[in-house]
């Protein structure tokens, strides 16, 4: 988010009539408050570690995640050469979990980021203009909102066909409506506040008002809401892979791994539970992180 703030400022200094750096001090104070919240810091560190793990997977993983051995199937945790056991095809679980973080995190984060951009834009436009523009945008969004998100994701992925890109696309479509809704309702509230009126009374145009007075106050809550969607997105992505609509075997991805290991649940339940545990850990950390960010952004404290 701080990177985005810098972008806004650079864009602003390009326009001569309106040079303004609104959010600098605010975001700094949010950051210092975040740093004081231990739970949030720990969650952020866990997620950062997982991201680093995903990026440097080839150097960290002890084995090739795709190389199996029929003879060494379903080894329990702690077996020799297999610190976290092996899966139903005798592949090293530790290496697969490390490599799996790549796809799982991408499929959890990218759709939410895309939806944040598109949904945020739609919502702010609808909220700021009100009237017919609002009705047109929000009723369209409502059509998508009427379906349960799992069903919608499955239906779109099914129609587009299996594959990572299509899964990301379908998840993006799923998350646009809720983000647009939140953005719209926050914008509508902010727009009605006196300081927006005061800015208009100062002769500022729509663009300046949105940039200086609306964006800063709307993107905060929307961003927090989007953070809370990350865990849902991870789980949905895992679900799509589980149904065979996302990643294809033999690629390592936690949802898909959960699926293929389900047959081993009675033979070796701990190994079978590992991908689920990872999904749980990540979504749990994202949720706590979003709570932490929310309270850090509450300026009145």
């Amino acid at each position: 988010m701080s990177a985005a703030a810098v972008d806004v400022r650079e864009a602003a200094s390009a326009a001569p009539a309106a040079q303004f750096a609104p959010t600098q001090g605010y975001w700094r104070s949010v950051f210092s408050r975040l740093m004081r919240d231990k739970v949030t810091v720990i969650c952020a560190l866990v997620i950062l570690a997982l991201i680093l793990m995903a990026v440097f997977a080839p150097w960290i993983a002890p084995e090739d995640p795709l190389k199996g051995s029929v003879m060494k199937r379903l080894r329990p945790i702690g077996s020799e050469g297999y610190p976290l056991g092996s899966d139903e095809l005798g592949r090293d679980m530790l290496s697969r979990l490390i490599f799996g973080a790549r796809l799982s995190l991408v499929m959890g984060i990218v759709p939410v980021l895309c939806a944040l951009g598109i949904g945020g834009l739609l919502g702010i436009t609808a909220g700021f203009h009100g009237g017919r523009v609002n009705t047109a945008i929000m009723r369209t969004v409502d059509v998508f909102y009427a379906f349960p998100s799992v069903l919608l994701a499955v239906a779109i992925s099914g129609a587009l066909g299996a594959g990572i890109t299509n899964a990301i696309l379908s998840l993006t479509i799923v998350f646009i409506p809720p983000i647009a809704r939140v953005a719209e309702s926050v914008t509508t509230q902010v727009r009605a506040l006196d300081y927006v009126e005061a800015a208009r009374a100062s002769g500022a145009g729509n663009f300046t008002i949105i940039r200086v007075h609306i964006l800063g106050n709307v993107m905060g809550p929307v961003f927090v809401y989007a953070t809370s969607l990350l865990s849902v997105c991870m789980i949905l992505a895992a679900g799509l892979s589980f149904l065979g609509l996302g990643t294809k075997p033999p690629l390592p991805e936690w949802g898909l791994m959960l699926n293929t290991l389900r047959t081993a649940i009675f033979q070796n339940p701990w190994v079978a539970a590992l991908p689920g545990l990872m999904i749980f850990l990540v979504s749990f950390c994202f949720n706590l992180l979003s709570d932490g960010v929310r309270s850090a952004m509450d300026v009145t404290r």
Binding site: G25, E197, A199, S202, G216
Partner: peptide, 25 residues
């Protein structure tokens, strides 16, 4: 305005709020 809180952008410092109008102009 009447509501002193609602009429100031909570994300702007006092100085930036006052300087906003002149910058726009």
């Amino acid at each position: 305005f009447q509501d002193s809180f609602a009429s100031l952008n909570p994300r702007l410092t006092v100085e930036d709020s006052i300087a906003f109008g002149p910058i726009v102009h």
